[in-house]
Amino acid sequence: MSASSLTKILYAEDEPDIQSIAQMALEMMGGYTLKVCNNGQEALEAAEAFAPDLILLDVMMPSMDGPTALQEMRAIPALANVPVIFMTAKVQNQEVEGYKAMGAIDVIAKPFDPMTLSETIQTLWERAVG
């Protein structure tokens, strides 16, 4: 078990419907505190001040995609060790491995099940920090 618990999640997603469903799922079902951004650029700007326990990034977004945002964040000392999970519609194993090699702890496939999203994220987070 880790000493800290998962409370604050920074979430970047450009599609409004998916964004609000995931936000509701994580806030209502998981009870987490969320900072929601519309793209990687916004996420990068908000990240340091928000000091998240976990970062959740969509892969394909306009004005800075998920992988680029991850690389930029890794360069910031305060964010270097925060676990990152990608979300993407493309789920070929090969790609998943690529994202993991970039430093993501895992990849969640879209469409996701909104009812179990928060449990999935909790499990992945515990596995990564535990």
């Binding site: 599609e15 409004p16 419907d17 519609a89 879209k110």
Partner: peptide, 10 residues
Amino acid sequence: HTLTGSAGTF
């Protein structure tokens, strides 16, 4: 692009 994502989600 937005339709793709929303349609899948719903």
